[in-house]
Each structure stands twice: as structure tokens, then as C-alpha cells.
């Protein structure tokens, strides 16, 4: 056989720089980054995209992508993305936010942006804690889950209940596409990629606000090996945070996506 018979099934996406990420081994931030880079590459939008990085573990996301990026104050990525998208409406604009950034500090920003129906996409990473600062309890921490600031487990009597962000934003009329996906196995990752593609296509066609919540692991702060953390996600997070599409506007459901 000659070399021409060889086909590359998978390679590192063009949307990535050559830098190694600072994420812990096994962290699904890297998977989420890769899916975004792959989707933008498939859509041919790598040179037409502006990302907004959050505060949190993904604060250095701009180092890893090959396209334009800005860095927002904690939780304020939706406000920044609003300004960018309104002044540069032909650009693909997305924010990449964790649960400490989006569901805690920036809950007001994200709700307002979704209610206004801003035409950008939000990639929301839910790993049930504040990863960067040492695994403190976040609004998404599960009842009874032990974190560094809830060492006896989250007590819902004093600390309240976790927020299901996707369901919450789906109630807003401005939101066109709101879905939750998981990143704990290959099949879920493929589904997540399809959802991200739908969200970016919806934005490209001007159909309104879109958000994808991605359930992620945090092996370091959960104190688990990556494989065990993925099992933990499937066993504990999926029952509380079911995957699915929570808001699909009529326009999005009728949208045609090439090669998907």
C-alpha cells in the first residue's frame, strides 16, 4: 500500500495555537475548547470570530485559540459580548464562562443578555465548583456535595439549592437555543459538538441568544482521578442536571445545517 491510502481521521484543530494548556490533566475544559475550535473550523469562521474569556480556570483561554479574544471582568462577559456584537454584527461572538463566573457573579448579566435576545453564543462550563480558586462551593454545587467551603456537604437549609441555569434561561423569550450537554464520554462529547454547532449556526443566522451548558469534571478539586470523576459526573450530576434541549425556537428548529 502507498501513503496515499492513509487518511487522517482526526487531527488537532486549526483553531488552536501550539501552546499547551494550563488545565489539570483530564480537565474537560480542553474538550470544550476543542469542540469550539472544531465547530468554527467546520463553519469557516475562524477568521471572523471574537471570543470573550471569563475569570476562572478559563481565564487564559485567549492563549489557546488562534482567533481574536478579549478578557472580561468577573461575570461580565455577556455585557462585553453585547457591546462587541452590536458594534460588529457580522462577527461570530461567543463567551466562554464557568459556573462561578456565569451562575454566581454574572447571573444578572447573563439573564439580562438572554432576556434582551442578544445575538451571541454562550458556552457555559458547569463543574459544580469554583475550580481556579480552590474548589469552593458554587451556585451549581449539588446538595450534600463536599467542597473546600462546604466541608460537611452543601446544606440546602442554609446554603440553598443549586441553580439549573439552562432551565432558568430557557424561560426567557429572548433565548433562541438553550441546551445542556455532558462531556463525560465520547458519545456525549459528539452530542455536545452538534449542540455547539447549532448554537453558532443560530447566531450566524441572527436567530437570537444561544447558550450551551456543558457538564464538566474537576478532578483536582473533586479529589478524584479523571476516570472516576467522569463516573461521578454520570452518577451524580446527570440526575440533577439532565441533558437536553430546553429552548429551541421555531426558527432554530427549522434551521438547516450543512453536514451535521
Amino acid at each position: 500500500m502507498t501513503e496515499t491510502d492513509v487518511k487522517v481521521v482526526y487531527k488537532r484543530p486549526l483553531g488552536f495555537t501550539d501552546r499547551t494548556t494550563h488545565y489539570c490533566p483530564g480537565c474537560t475544559h480542553g474538550v470544550a475548547h476543542r469542540l469550539i475550535a472544531e465547530v468554527l473550523e467546520e463553519m469557516g469562521e475562524l477568521n471572523n470570530t471574537i471570543g470573550v474569556a471569563p475569570v476562572g480556570c478559563a481565564v487564559f483561554a485567549y492563549n489557546y485559540f488562534n482567533f481574536d479574544f478579549v478578557e472580561a471582568a468577573h461575570g461580565r462577559a455577556p455585557a462585553m459580548a453585547t457591546g462587541i456584537k452590536r458594534t460588529l454584527p457580522n462577527k461570530i461572538v461567543f463567551t466562554y464562562q464557568g459556573d462561578g463566573d456565569l451562575a454566581s457573579m454574572g447571573m444578572g448579566e447573563i439573564v439580562a443578555a438572554a432576556a434582551r435576545g442578544e445575538h451571541f453564543t454562550v458556552i457555559f462550563i458547569n463543574n459544580t465548583n469554583y475550580g481556579m480558586t480552590g474548589g469552593q462551593m458554587a451556585p451549581t454545587t449539588l446538595p450534600g456535595q463536599k467542597t473546600s467551603s462546604s466541608p460537611l456537604g452543601r446544606d440546602v437549609e442554609t446554603q440553598g439549592y443549586p441553580i439549573r441555569t439552562a432551565e432558568l434561561l430557557a424561560t426567557l423569550d429572548g433565548a433562541a437555543f438553550v441546551a445542556r450537554r455532558s462531556l463525560h464520554d465520547a458519545r456525549s462529547i459528539r452530542n455536545a459538538k452538534r449542540a455547539i454547532r447549532t448554537a453558532f449556526e443560530a447566531q450566524k443566522q441572527g436567530l437570537g441568544f444561544s447558550m450551551i451548558e456543558l457538564l464538566s469534571i474537576c478532578p483536582t478539586n473533586w479529589g478524584l482521578k479523571p476516570a472516576a470523576a467522569r463516573t461521578w459526573l454520570a452518577e451524580h450530576m446527570l440526575p440533577y442536571y439532565p441533558v437536553g434541549d430546553f429552548k429551541v425556537s421555531t426558527a432554530v428548529s427549522e434551521m438547516k445545517i450543512g453536514g451535521n
Binding site: M1, D5, V6, K7, V8, V9, Y10, K11, R12, P13, F16, T20, T21, Y23, P25, G26, C27, T28, H29, G30, V31, R34, D185, A186, I189, R190
Partner: peptide, 15 residues
Amino acid sequence: AVVCPDAAITVFRGV
């Protein structure tokens, strides 16, 4: 390659 968090893997089909 699909599950690799660091996009470290290139997959080839063929010999």
C-alpha cells in the same frame, strides 16, 4: 482523540 482534553492525538486510518 474525541475524548482527549488536550488535542494531543492524531488518528490515521490505513497502513
